[in-house]
């Protein structure tokens, strides 16, 4: 058990880490901007400064890097938050935010949009709506079940998820292999490279609206990990809390996938990492997950654009980093017992 003063220090540490990652990410990329210029350009929006930077500096900063950095931070924090919340309501630390089919649905929506070439913004809308639809179907199925609701939800989620997966595969099969197929394939790999300002305005609000209720309910998530019935005897309507959390997490996941494609492992691994640092109590673990998830995705995205001559899809990198890290956590847990 870590005492509260200890935890405060660690939380401040995580906040500082995020601030460093956030500002550091502006500097990194093919087009380097030095820190002094960065500060000057940012300040110039507030106060009058003599312009000693190029127009290109300013364009790269505001039109390319700013939306990308904000999107990375919001998506990373959101996915970690959704994952941590799902692990609580399903009383299972192995659960990730796509367990109820939100990302499979969103992927199908995007693939459909790409297949019919309905345009950049419309593809995001389609992905978002299909992501939400997948979870609504899962909830509708699970409503008919009286016993062991959480297990039924997970089973229904896997079922609905694989149907949408099959849909994506079919679209790939019939897609034009010269342009549509690669577009779908790259899109599904997950990337922040093409993030524009309009994406931030499209996906940012639903993700933040999704995070808020989950953060506010974080004490109740603690109680809910005792199981539905026990939680109810302590005055919690498990069904209501779970539905709110699922709603929030679905907004987050569908919105994230709709602009960045599939970015896996963040929602599964980051909550575990947060638990290692601040313990299992959702009152601190949930905010810690958000901070850590944002930092993590920013760092990984920096690697995605710096590591090779061409961009590496970030979904590949999160898997490369996330999977071994998860294995490390399991081995470490196993060694402790």
């Amino acid at each position: 058990m870590k005492d509260s003063k200890h935890i405060k220090i660690r939380m401040s540490g995580l906040a500082v880490l995020l601030a460093v990652c956030f500002f550091g990410s502006f500097l990194m990329g093919k087009y380097a901007i030095d820190p002094v210029t960065l500060v000057k350009i940012l300040l110039s929006r507030v106060v009058e400064l003599p312009v000693d930077w190029t127009v290109q500096d300013e364009t790269v900063l505001f039109n390319v890097r700013l939306p990308r950095v904000i999107m990375g931070a919001v998506i990373g924090g959101g996915l970690a938050c959704a994952g941590a919340a799902y692990q609580g309501i399903f009383q299972n630390p192995m659960v990730s935010p796509d367990i109820l089919g939100a990302s499979n649905g969103a992927a199908f929506g995007a693939a459909l949009g790409l297949f019919f070439s309905i345009g950049y913004q419309a593809i995001s809308v389609s992905a978002f709506l299909f992501g939400i639809m997948a979870v609504v179907i899962v909830l509708a199925i699970s409503r008919r079940v009286k016993f062991n609701v959480t297990l039924e939800l997970i089973l229904a989620g896997i079922m609905v998820g694989s149907i949408f997966n099959a849909g994506v595969s079919y679209l790939k099969l019939v897609a034009d292999p010269t342009d549509t197929l690669p577009a779908i394939t790259y899109w599904l790999m997950g990337s922040l490279a093409s993030t524009r300002t309009q994406d931030v305005f499209f996906a940012g609000p639903p993700i933040i609206i999704g995070i808020l209720p989950i953060l506010l309910l974080r004490w109740r998530l603690n109680v809910l990990t005792m199981g539905d019935e026990e939680a109810r005897t302590m005055g919690i309507n498990a069904k209501v809390v779970r539905t709110i959390v699922i709603g929030g997490a679905t907004l987050i996941t569908a919105a994230a996938v709709s602009v960045s494609g599939l970015i896996g492992w963040v929602g599964l691994v980051i909550p575990h990492f947060a638990r290692m640092i601040v313990g299992d109590d959702y009152r601190v673990m949930l905010p810690a997950s958000v901070l850590l998830g944002s930092s993590f995705l920013l760092v990984v995205d920096n690697f995605a654009r710096m590591l090779a001559t061409r961009e590496i899809p970030i979904g590949i990198l999160t898997a490369f980093i996330g999977a071994p890290f998860f294995l490390y956590l399991i081995l470490k847990e196993g060694g402790r017992q």
């Binding site: 058990m1 692990q87 609580g88 009383q91 299972n92 630390p93 603690n222 109680v223 990990t225 005792m226 302590m234 638990r275 313990g279 299992d280 109590d281």
Partner: peptide
């Protein structure tokens, strides 16, 4: 339980 809480947190529930 899937997660571990301090004794005080358990009672606080």
């Amino acid at each position: 339980t899937a997660f571990s809480y301090s004794v005080l947190d358990m009672v606080l529930m």
